[in-house]
């Protein structure tokens, strides 16, 4: 039993990705535990999306392994029950209704139609998009689409999986959202984590990351530049070194997390 408990993580082991002479990722080690929110920060081209693709199995690493609950060779349809992935943008151009799009998230699950419909609606409520449910997806704005896909991914890993713990990978889930929905999305990521799901979020907003993450991982040029709790990582020195900007860091008056202010 102990071994099973130990292996309930999403683990990236010595992962490198090389194209020609260019190393997109260089010996990355990372563990995401159920129940925590881990933010991945880093300048453009640091390898954040490549890391996400390696973890989701979309891209084979040149060397290294990704272990999902201790295994690196899950059949795709079983992996889908444990790992939900929200891509940066989606190319759906057929006029499904919003509800139909969210229901697509239930494809890997073996539940009944009525149950799927109930889950899809609850997922839409969670992302504050229930009122859109009968709209055609193609008529939505960018931010609305992002929330609908978020609901789809939530619906996908809604039920506990018999194979093991569940994980959620979010690639810039807040990029197209207004401030209110940015907060809502990350609050929701936090809630999912509190229910035992491991969440990894790629972000650019340092303050959102500071407020909602348990841990922050910073990538630069394919290497792990820093890792730790927000107050350990978000220091003027580290930020200056990685992002090449000058900032001051103080304490957030209400949430007591680091507050980063640009100079």
């Amino acid at each position: 039993m102990d071994r099973v408990e130990d292996s309930s993580t999403l683990e990236v082991r010595h992962v490198s990705v090389q194209i020609g002479n260019r190393k997109l990722l260089d010996d990355i080690n990372l563990v995401i535990k159920p129940g925590e929110v881990v933010s991945i920060l880093g300048p453009n081209g640091a390898g954040k999306s490549t890391l996400m693709k390696v973890i989701s199995g979309e891209r084979e690493p040149t060397t290294g392994d990704v272990l999902l609950n201790g295994r690196g060779d899950w059949p795709l349809e079983q992996q889908a029950l444990m790992l939900g992935v929200l891509p940066q943008s989606s190319s759906l151009s057929f006029p499904f209704t919003v509800e139909e799009v969210v229901l697509l998230g239930r494809i890997p699950c073996s539940s009944h139609r009525e149950e799927n419909l109930m889950i899809a609606r609850q997922a839409l409520e969670k992302v504050d998009a229930f009122y859109l449910k009968d709209r055609s997806y193609t008529t939505l704005s960018g931010g609305e689409r992002q929330r609908v896909h978020m609901a789809r991914v939530l619906a996908q890993i809604w039920d506990e999986a018999p194979q093991g713990k569940r994980y959620l990978l979010l690639d810039e889930p807040t990029s197209a959202l207004d401030p209110a929905h940015q907060q809502l999305t990350l609050k929701m990521a936090r809630q999912e984590a509190d229910q035992g799901i491991g969440v990894m979020v790629i972000m650019h907003d340092l303050n959102l990351a500071a407020r909602y993450s348990d841990r922050i991982v910073i990538l630069k040029n394919g290497k792990l530049a820093a890792e730790g709790a927000p107050h350990q990582v978000l220091t003027p020195e580290t930020i200056g070194e990685v992002f090449e900007i000058e900032v001051s860091v103080s304490e957030h008056p209400a949430y007591h997390c680091p507050l980063v202010v640009n100079h």
């Binding site: 349809e77 889908a80 989606s90 190319s91």
Partner: peptide, 20 residues
């Protein structure tokens, strides 16, 4: 039918939904 529905989301999305 259902597989084609998933494919409409995009190839990587369909893969994340467990489709080869």
């Amino acid at each position: 039918g259902q597989v084609l529905n998933a494919l409409l989301l995009g190839e990587s999305e369909a893969r994340h939904l467990g489709i080869n």
